[in-house]
Amino acid sequence: MNRLRRRPLAFWAGLAAAVLSLLVPIALNDSQLTVYVFIGLSVIVVAGLSLLMGFAGQVSLGQAAFYAIGAYTAAILTRALEVPPLLSLAAATAFTAVVAVAVGLPLLRLRGHYLAFATLAFQLIVLSVIGEARGLTGGDTGMPGIPTLSIGPLAIQGQYRTFIYAYVTWVLVAAVLLFNRNLVRSRPGRGLRALATSEAGALAAGVPVVRYKLQVFALSAAYAGLAGGVYAFFVSYIAPGSFPVLLSVQFLIMAAVGGLGSIWGSAVGATVVYLLVQLLQSLGTGPGLPPQLPAILSYAVYGLVLVLIMLFLPQGLLPAIQGRISARRAVSAVESPARLARLD
């Protein structure tokens, strides 16, 4: 038990990151705060994806579909049915998880590339359903005028609207990351990591493989649904175009860049990729540049980043940095999941 006691460097690094990210919004202007919120929402989605892919070994190329379902559920509930926003957000999260269970029951029998394509197909179906159900969703023109988040009479609006959303997002990110950390270091967490390598071995050890796969799929969808719900309240306008397939790819790259199987890596990956994409967008939209340039840059860069990461840092950014540090400290260089289990 003694080896579990020492507070490692990672703990202090994590604490520093938490404090820093808590202080950052004070220094930001409104448009920077908007970026901060979007990064936070990405972190939430990517945290779920990292759990699904990095720990349980199941691929999803349709995570933006769950993001969309969360956003539309929250929007429809508050706008058409006048459900209080907070309740709508909870309902959107739960409903997205339920959809994931219904979809996952048949899909999770597939593995690897087949599962990736099936989830991709699922997203295309969701997008066309949203586009066609005009009475409910406004079709391709989208849903404007979604109310903002509120608790009773206290609504997030006015001068500090974006600032408050930044902190709402921060709290949700912190909760999600802590949830993940708790889950990974537990009986079901070990079961998930086990079934990623060998389903037969996990079954024989008593791991209810089918149930766990379904649960982690639903969980990752619930995170995406939650983030989608907040997104709808924050931007107050959603359309099918807000949730393209490219967004699913972006989530996947964020997860890979941060480090699949690394809990805090989701935050690193989402931040790095989001800022990189922003940077390229602003580079591509300069005066005198062709209008297709931003799109080309982002597509090309997704591909390039993924290739580079897979070539040089196959475990992802954060585990690679952690590996460097612990190698320098002459601690035995083990992979991150192995070390994670001993952090507390």
């Binding site: 990591r193 390598t197 060998s198 008593g206």
Partner: peptide
């Protein structure tokens, strides 16, 4: 059929699924 990316101790702990 050991589980990759997990320590020996964690591998063994998976076995406890049977009674937890």
């Amino acid at each position: 059929r050991l589980f990759r990316g997990m320590t020996v101790l964690e591998n063994v702990m998976v076995g406890a699924h049977a009674w937890t």
